[in-house]
Design a protein around this nucleic acid. Structure first.
Length: 247
DNA sequence: CCAGACGTTGTT
DNA sequence: GTCTGG
DNA sequence: CCAGACGTTGTT
DNA sequence: GTCTGG
């Protein structure tokens, strides 16, 4: 799954990498701990001009069919399984509302059960965060879907997005069964196409080549979504190794 | 995703 | 909107 | 036909 | 256990 990610590329780099029509009209500070329900930049085609635009959307889809925000509280729509993308709530979005999510990395957690932890008895599993990124490019794109929901009380529109997941590649398989779908730049245009003329880009929903990715232990501070900053990227040097005892 | 809260009434 | 269950 | 759901991950 | 907030 993908439930936390990083975006540190500045406006200029994102504009160039994604060949946006213009720079995003909102601030884009680096964020080392992006969590669900927050508003993040998403790239899609403008329907009329077919230009690539970046706009802010909420992470976690609120489908246009929702009668209230509460209806989708408690159910996770931050990810969409590639395997179920052509059914239910996702079908319409996959056919017409695909988007790119700019990122520089993402986190996955290795859950270590209490029975495998040394030292004093503990009952809670330990959550060890790992950071993943691409070797060849600092910035990349998750395959995303978006939707717009009109609040019946206020009349306001809420735009929201989800990140598509697929089976894990060899790099992630040891800690997780799933990973986010990462798109190669050569496939961006096909992914965000809205004309409906071309066949659905089902072939792009594959695990990214493990040989093109890197992984490292991240700072456990990343577990709390209130923490942020560059120091979250890597495990502190003075941190003891797993299972090691201090005397 | 993880962390942390999770309740009511009445009074100030 | 679209699919499933009855 | 109408009514009602429509999701993911992890863990056991 | 389950829901909310970030």
């Amino acid at each position: 799954m993908c439930g936390r990610y990083i975006r540190r590329s500045d406006k200029q780099r994102i504009t160039e990498h994604f060949r946006l029509h213009g720079e995003p009209p909102f601030p884009l500070p680096p964020d080392f701990n992006i969590a669900p329900t927050t508003f993040q930049p998403v790239i899609r085609l403008q329907r009329d001009t077919h230009e690539r635009e970046a706009l802010l959307m909420r992470w976690g889809i609120v489908p246009f069919t929702a009668k209230s925000l509460d209806e989708y509280k408690g159910i996770s729509t931050i990810n969409a399984r590639a395997e179920s993308i052509q059914s239910g709530i996702w079908k319409r979005l996959f056919e017409r509302q695909r988007c790119l999510i700019p990122a520089d990395g993402f986190y996955e957690w290795d859950t270590i059960l209490p029975s495998r932890l040394s030292g004093p008895k503990s009952t809670k599993p330990r959550k060890k965060p790992m950071r993943f990124w691409l070797k060849n490019d600092p910035v990349f794109a998750f395959a995303g879907l978006w939707d717009a929901w009109r609040n019946p009380d206020t009349g306001e529109w809420l735009q929201s997005f989800a990140i598509i997941t697929t089976e894990a590649n060899d790099l992630l398989a040891s800690i997780h069964t799933r990973m986010p779908v990462i798109l190669h730049p050569r496939d961006y245009a096909r992914w965000i196409d809205r004309s409906g003329d071309s066949p659905l880009p089902l072939d792009l929903l594959k695990p990214f080549d493990a040989a093109e990715m890197q992984a490292a232990e991240a700072n456990p501070k990343v577990n709390n979504a209130r923490n942020n900053g560059e120091e979250l990227l890597d495990k502190p040097d003075d941190e003891p190794e797993e299972g090691q005892m201090l005397f």
